[in-house]
Amino acid sequence: MARRFAALTTAHVADACVRAGVTVRCAPSALRAVTPGSRVAGRVLPARHVGSVDVFLEAYETARPDDVLVVDNGGRLDEACVGDLAVLEAQAAGVAGVVIWGLHRDTADIRAIGLPVFSTGALPTGPLSLRERPADALTSATVGDWTVSAADLVFADDDGVLFAPADRADELLTLAETIRDTERRQAERIRAGHTLRAQVGFDAYLAKRRETPTLTFRDHLRAVGGAIEE
């Protein structure tokens, strides 16, 4: 799965979700790579942070190769919950990357480690208090509007972070590859002087729409086999 995603983007996977009728679960746009150009894909390894690093260490005990630690710190902006030691230990445990619904610190050291880390930003201070640990601290994590678990995959790159059901992985990646290949062919033809408008018969669409005002561009694209949306 990680190998196939290496030749894709989160945009391809998001479009595949739309085409397959799977809910598109994007993390809030503030969640970005600590090191631009980072990318990761893997099974969600959830951890709800309550003020202590031990929840991460316990998650690493059950980590499978290429899992991605997904840290839920409630999107807090008053404390960082992941630092260089937690990231270095993730790397030692075989974890493929870290996604944080919250802040990180030790930016320079994290970049030097080289493990893909995504967060909403950086702050010097670590956890400010120790809070009560919920029963589901290691079974689910909430990121923005979405609650995810080991039944989900996470994909992340420069466009952001996306979650998808693990049991639909092959279908979604196959669709994403088809979308990528179609877009590449269209891009190559644009560079060769054949505009996208010509490729999709845009003038014909405008003519048909004058006759049938309810005709949508997506309906037209489906008819001509030139889908660039959905």
Rank of each mutant, 00 (worst) to 15 (best):
A93D: 00
H104Q: 13
E58W: 11
V34L: 06
A11N: 10
L115M: 03
R48P: 01
E229D: 12
F155A: 07
V148F: 04
R210I: 13
T178V: 12
G37R: 09
Q186H: 05
L123Q: 10
A30V: 12
R191I: 08
R32W: 09
V148N: 03
D72M: 05
E89W: 14
L173A: 03
W101A: 04
L196H: 07
G74V: 05
G160R: 05
A223T: 10
V95C: 06
P65M: 06
A96F: 03
V161I: 11
R76D: 06
V44E: 01
A11G: 12
A14Q: 10
R4F: 10
S129D: 13
V44F: 05
V53N: 10
A92Q: 14
A187W: 03
A14M: 11
P165W: 13
T214N: 11
P46Y: 03
H220W: 15
V55S: 03
H104K: 09
T10I: 09
A90R: 02
R222A: 15
H49F: 15
P134C: 00
R4H: 11
L8F: 12
A86R: 00
A33R: 04
Q186P: 05
A176K: 01
A141F: 02
P127R: 08
D84N: 13
A112T: 12
T147W: 06
G102R: 03
V224G: 04
G114N: 05
G94D: 01
A92Y: 10
L221D: 01
L85R: 14
V18G: 07
P116K: 02
G83L: 13
T125D: 14
D152S: 10
T147V: 04
V68R: 09
K208C: 12
F163Y: 09
S149P: 06
K208P: 07
V68H: 00
T23H: 07
S149I: 08
L85N: 10
R76E: 14
P65E: 12
E79M: 15
E183T: 05
G37Y: 08
E79Y: 14
V24F: 13
L45C: 04
A96Y: 00
R218L: 14
R189T: 09
R105H: 15
D106V: 13
G201A: 02
L221A: 01
R111E: 13
P124D: 14
E61R: 12
A80E: 09
R25W: 13
L138K: 01
T120N: 14
G37Q: 02
R19E: 15
P165Y: 12
A122N: 02
R32L: 08
R185Q: 11
G126H: 12
V99W: 05
V71E: 05
T182R: 07
R168Q: 15
T182E: 04
G121V: 09
F217K: 00
D170M: 11
V98Q: 00
V24L: 08
F5K: 04
A59F: 03
G94M: 03
V99M: 07
D136R: 01
V68D: 03
A80D: 10
V154G: 02
V117R: 07
F202D: 08
